[in-house]
Design a protein around this nucleic acid. Sequence first.
DNA 1: GTTAACGGTTTAATCGATTAAACAATTTTA
DNA 2: TAAAATTGTTTAATCGATTAAACCGTTAAC
Lengths: 332, 332
Amino acid sequence: MKRTSLKDIAQRVGVSTALVSYVLNNKKEGRISKAIAERIRETARAMNYRTNQIAKSLKTNKTMTIGLVLADISNPFSSAIARVIEDAANESKYTVLFGSADENPERFRRLVDIFRDRQVDGLILLPPNGVGEDIRRLYEQRVPFVQLDRYYPASPGNVVALDNFTAGFDGASLLLSTGRSKIGLIAFESQLYHLRQRKLGYQQACLQAGVPPEPSLVAELGVHQLEKTVPAAIDKLLKNGADSLFFLSNTLSAIGLRHLNQLPIRVPDDLAVVSFDENELLDLFYAPLTYLQQPLEQMGRKAIEILLAAMENPQQITRINFPATLVRRRSA
Amino acid sequence: MKRTSLKDIAQRVGVSTALVSYVLNNKKEGRISKAIAERIRETARAMNYRTNQIAKSLKTNKTMTIGLVLADISNPFSSAIARVIEDAANESKYTVLFGSADENPERFRRLVDIFRDRQVDGLILLPPNGVGEDIRRLYEQRVPFVQLDRYYPASPGNVVALDNFTAGFDGASLLLSTGRSKIGLIAFESQLYHLRQRKLGYQQACLQAGVPPEPSLVAELGVHQLEKTVPAAIDKLLKNGADSLFFLSNTLSAIGLRHLNQLPIRVPDDLAVVSFDENELLDLFYAPLTYLQQPLEQMGRKAIEILLAAMENPQQITRINFPATLVRRRSA
DNA sequence: GTTAACGGTTTAATCGATTAAACAATTTTA
DNA sequence: TAAAATTGTTTAATCGATTAAACCGTTAAC
């Protein structure tokens, strides 16, 4: 049950494979006799021919494939990204290879290597902590790529991300404007630039409002065992007098809300809450959450657009930061 | 900045490409002189050689790639599957190509074709409504594949799925055992076998408990505009006297819970609730939901295992149904 | 001392396409 | 009518690997 090849068609019709290739790719338009062209097309259809992309790729040096390295596929943010990237890529006839680095630099490197071995035409990366050097190397090796969402500001190359500083600033400002002055921050202790920026934005907002930064109101957590550390952090911040909470990622708020649900505290009266990112969970909370929404669709499409451009013309580098939208609901 | 090829190494070392290939693939073990082998390995490392999988695939007729067609990537169930499949495939050195059919037969067919054009070694499919014929054709063409979660019982081929009938039976039985006799069912009007089975299980449980089936307690919804139709269905069922709700999928319960949150009804006192599938949302609801849990990890791993076996030996067909676990919490 | 076996390496075909260049047969142009 | 241009098709190289078979010295066997 071998698949039919160009050769099979050529034999059946009694012409060379070259001619078959020309016809099926609509090359040499005017020069091929209508009659034979039709016979070739007919036969191809009859024999159920589909071109072997592997062979084609080897010759053309294009795979029409894009590698997507997600930070962690189990995060709904990741699947949302995956969906957008896949759609946008498909529209340009590209297929997406994907993998999840699970916030692990080793896995990240492995995935990038695997994708490159498979000759992907370009990469979309949501890099974990500790791969700045790898990004730089990719750039030096002229591999077309775009960093999406997360990025290393010191590493060169294309970037599509949120304006995280302003987003952090806006989130905190909202809380301050509603009279809260003891904003508890729940963040990752990660060195990832985009997360640092969010925190800086928050601090700047506090400073501008004349509220001095209060270390006892900041919790920075490791990525592991969040199920335990987030509730503990919330308890601590509340004890330290927080009148509001600002979650710097949806992973944190997802777990946090579960805990808040069980506390004898009412949101927003006793405690105002703001979170980053979207998540169905935020809707289901009894006081639907106010959050900073990333324009995922736009960002994903832009990333593909930039990547395709970079594949054409590697010189040109684009770095874009999109504004977040503050979606105001009941929690703050 | 071209990547180095076998030829480059061969030239540098002064041997034939054949020898380089043998060394790097550890073939012809005993026969190659230690000294040269070492020099080749050394040079390969120095030149940063990585094998071109495209070329290798063309020759060996294996791509070490598996195509995964998801039903709808935006569903957390899908991303959970993707994660498991990816991990399991990676462990066997396979890479996953993926795409989301979005419950659309046309898209499903397109994805399968694209994957086949790229010569994937096998497919894992979560097929939408209306592709039974396509599945049968794949089987006839001896394409190795496994249907996962959803499947066409009349189409041949490997299957890994839940024992949906029993799961439906168990869910309804639980409600009946707590004294509820007017179970409102919220389901899709889909013809998908696995969903029909869930409903049959529910009906069987009711019959056995001496509760006659009551059409006014069954809502079957189209896939579109669920945001409107689910709340409407809930309202209708409540009006018709339902004392409990059984959601046949997580998509339905996700939306349903949002509505229940706003009603002056207390779960579980006024209304018991059971849902299918897992979802963070079920945890966050004020009365954490009782649900039927699919052994996703097991199912995904089994699917890969069966697929790899099928790639070796296409004769053998495996069909497995896993039992669901009833996770009992506050809602019922 | 001839043959056989072995060890180390190369030759060359092959996978299934693409595509520049060559070729032969007509037709046009001058 | 000879040269030039056009048309329709084939030839053959190529992409980067893999691998059976051939090759050529040595060494072992009888």
